[in-house]
């Protein structure tokens, strides 16, 4: 894990024409990408969201690159729209004459689509790029949240997004999870081949909108030899955040009249003597620190003068 591409250069710089050519010439790269895309399409489970299995769906391919994952979608008979930031990768996709539409955009800036446009979304080896800040004004947290929020919006309710990624460490998974949950997604992580270090693959399977009671949670693929229960739990589910029991607490405080209610007829509510005293002490200490002149502290500090003075 010493040489992670996302720590070398921003994606639009790293994926230059030389890197892009690997995605057509290197048989291994092509093979890996295609298999990842096939598995992602399988996890997308379009039969539950699209009305019929025979009708094509409109799918978003996030970080489409040279369109290898798009080819898998095209072969399955779907229409797709691909987005990528690297012009060199997109140029190769145009050369290869892919069936889908291509758009050049930074995913961290959000997805520019109308609400409820797509039947599903796939993304192959992209998410880890969004965890990097390439410029000082970029914040990975904001960018990931922006990405998930706009992704949630442009998917149809009940549609799925399957995002394969290479996490650099455990905490990065948690980090990505948190942002997806904030954006309203429900879902879990599917880890394929969890006991192998090379074949191990992480898929974030997210569902936009109310969970469908009829669709089953996806199962992780295991090598045929180890049909027994894996040692690591392959699937984790996001727990809905427990709501504080606000109803009972409001009943308890209803009888007590709050200061705001008591002084509702006044323009400003009076500060308690103690609060005034504390403020004066604090200000006194601050001015002393600054070397300015202060009056000596006494028991009369912060008291009101009598009216007969």
């Amino acid at each position: 894990m010493a040489h992670r591409p996302e720590s070398k250069a921003p994606p639009e710089v790293f994926y230059d024409s030389k890197e892009a050519r690997k995605y057509i010439l290197h048989a291994h790269t092509v093979d890996v990408q295609t298999r990842l895309a096939e598995r992602a399409l399988e996890l997308l489970d379009l039969s539950s969201s699209a009305r019929t299995t025979t009708s094509p769906a409109l799918i978003l391919d996030l970080g489409c690159g040279t369109g290898l994952s798009g080819d898998v979608l095209s072969r399955a008979g779907h229409f797709w729209v691909g987005m990528d930031i690297s012009s060199a990768m997109l140029a190769v996709a145009v050369q290869r004459d892919v069936d889908g539409d291509l758009i050049r955009q930074d995913l961290g800036e959000g997805l520019p689509f109308r609400i409820g446009s797509f039947d599903g979304a796939v993304s192959i080896s992209v998410l880890q790029w969004l965890c990097q800040a390439e410029r000082s004004e970029q914040d990975p947290r904001t960018r990931l949240f922006m990405f998930f929020m706009t992704l949630y919006a442009c998917l149809r309710r009940g549609a799925r997004a399957v995002l394969q990624f290479y996490p650099s460490h455990e905490r990065q998974i948690e980090f990505i999870f948190t942002q997806a949950k904030r954006a309203g997604f429900d879902g879990g992580l599917v880890v394929d081949y969890p006991n192998s270090s090379r074949a191990k693959k992480f898929y974030l399977v997210l569902r936009a909108g109310p969970p469908d009671a009829t669709s089953r949670a996806p199962r992780a693929a295991l090598p045929p030899s180890s049909e027994t229960v894996p040692t690591i739990a392959p699937e984790r589910r996001l727990q809905p955040a427990g709501k504080p029991d606000s109803a009972s607490s409001s009943v308890a405080t209803a009888a007590v009249v709050s200061p705001a209610q008591r002084y509702a007829h006044r323009k400003t509510s009076p500060r308690s003597a103690l609060a005034v005293r504390r403020f004066i002490e604090k200000k006194r200490a601050r001015r002393l620190r600054q070397g300015k002149s202060v009056r000596p502290a006494s028991k009369y500090s912060g008291r009101r003068r009598s009216t007969r003075f």
Binding site: L58, F79, V81, D101, L102, I103, Q105, E109, G110, P112, F113, R114, S117, F118, C154
Partner: peptide
């Protein structure tokens, strides 16, 4: 770019149709 994609596209800044 197909006209279908164009129809679903909005301005990334102002979120208005293009």
């Amino acid at each position: 770019m197909r006209l279908l994609t164009h129809n679903l596209l909005i301005c990334p800044v102002h979120k208005k149709p293009l």
